[in-house]
Write a protein that binds this DNA or RNA. Structure first.
Lengths: 217, 217
DNA sequence: ATGTTCAGTATTGTATACAGGATTCTTTCA
DNA sequence: TGAAAGAATCCTGTATACAATACTGAACAT
């Protein structure tokens, strides 16, 4: 049956959820038949979703041997961090002034993040929302899609990181500085903070990943 | 039968060729059965390739109504141009010094481009090679993959543009300036030229597309 | 002449079937 | 006891089948 939204879209979201929730851990093998049974669909839309997620970077396609969740790799988080710390500032630069109402929404998100310490999944969700909402006014939809896709990569690292460190990360201090700068109409300052936010954040994840990867030998 | 490279990869390349050659023109509908017969494979790998190309931006998936080549749209070339004129300079900045040998290869490509005026497909191929080779030393593979994918978008516009204007475009003058700057170890200057190269080039394509799109009503 | 309804056809999205490599487990031999 | 070989199983990649929508065109009404 053909419904309005292709099954592959729903299936993609569900698989992303499994990755973000940690149920599909980095490095683990992904079998399409198992997912198809679990989700109650056939292998076809599952494989379409897996191929898409491989392209997006969450998974890895091993020719002839299926898919696995991309293992944590210091090089990857570094590479993606470099790109994010360039593209998100670009998106902010292209955006029209952010209305006060949206700044308030972002502040509220930060406060909610403070209360979700200890719950990695929830605080990571909020963090992603924060950036999506910050940039939602950007008139370049292709750029928005790219940044949203790229942000999915740090999520895997953050999840593993927060699980180990006990859920403490994602300082909202940098967010607050950006909001203050935007409230004073100091766009360039906010843009610099955004760049630093990703650069420092992913550097921290890179450093942690190096130790985590080497210790799991 | 399972060969070493998945069929979808070959099929993707073949479909990209059809788009670049203009045989699949912007806006035209793409039927998977027809492609499958033509390429001598089943619908499955064809549809996998079509889904990938939709994600990359060359095609568009119309839910319930298949695929079509993304029509020329001034907004799209502008958006992609903005991203390219940020990411390629970033890739160059991250690259180690470019060896003299590679600069010579790039010069040779420029000379060959001069001789292919009148043959859009050939000169566009060479232009893409030029940028790929310029950046091939960049240590950020994810960034390289993104720029390579993004460059596929201007190709569709260039092809239509050169077909109408008689094959004249792609001035190699900007390339030469970059190579001179790199030869003098003036990286920042070369990076600025690279940014301008994409900005001006895509602005020209955007302006032309506006007239082309409005006149085809 | 233009618009509308209703078959019939074409085409898509999904499910299932099939072939062959990859993996695993057992068995055999050193 | 451990390594190597081989059989059995699993799983992937591809092909095909099926169900339902979207399109096409002819007959009809306005």
């Amino acid at each position: 049956m053909i419904t309005r939204a292709p099954l592959r879209d729903d299936v993609s979201r569900e698989i992303v959820q499994l990755v973000h929730s940690g149920e599909l851990a980095p490095g683990s093998k992904v079998r399409d038949v198992a997912l198809a049974e679990r989700l109650g669909v056939s292998r076809t839309p599952v494989r379409e979703a897996l191929l898409r997620l491989s392209r997006d970077g969450a998974l890895e396609a091993l020719p002839g041997r299926g898919f696995r969740v991309r293992p944590l790799d210091p090089g990857e988080i570094r590479d993606v961090g470099t790109i994010l710390s360039t593209l998100e500032p670009l998106a902010l630069r292209l955006s029209p002034d952010i209305p006060r109402e949206r700044l308030d929404r972002l502040s509220a998100l930060d406060r909610r993040m403070e209360t979700t310490r200890g719950d990695p999944a929830a605080s990571i969700d909020l963090h992603d929302d924060w950036h999506r909402i910050l940039l939602e006014g950007c008139p370049n939809p292709r750029l928005l899609q790219m940044t949203a896709t790229l942000r999915q990569t740090p999520r895997r690292y953050l999840h593993a990181y927060m699980r180990q460190t006990g859920g403490v990360s994602l300082s909202t201090g940098q967010h607050a500085k950006m909001l203050e700068a935007l409230g004073r109409d100091e766009r360039e300052s906010a843009i610099r903070h955004l760049e630093q936010h990703w650069r420092r954040g992913t550097e921290e994840l890179e450093a942690w990943t190096k130790t985590a990867v080497s210790s799991e030998q």
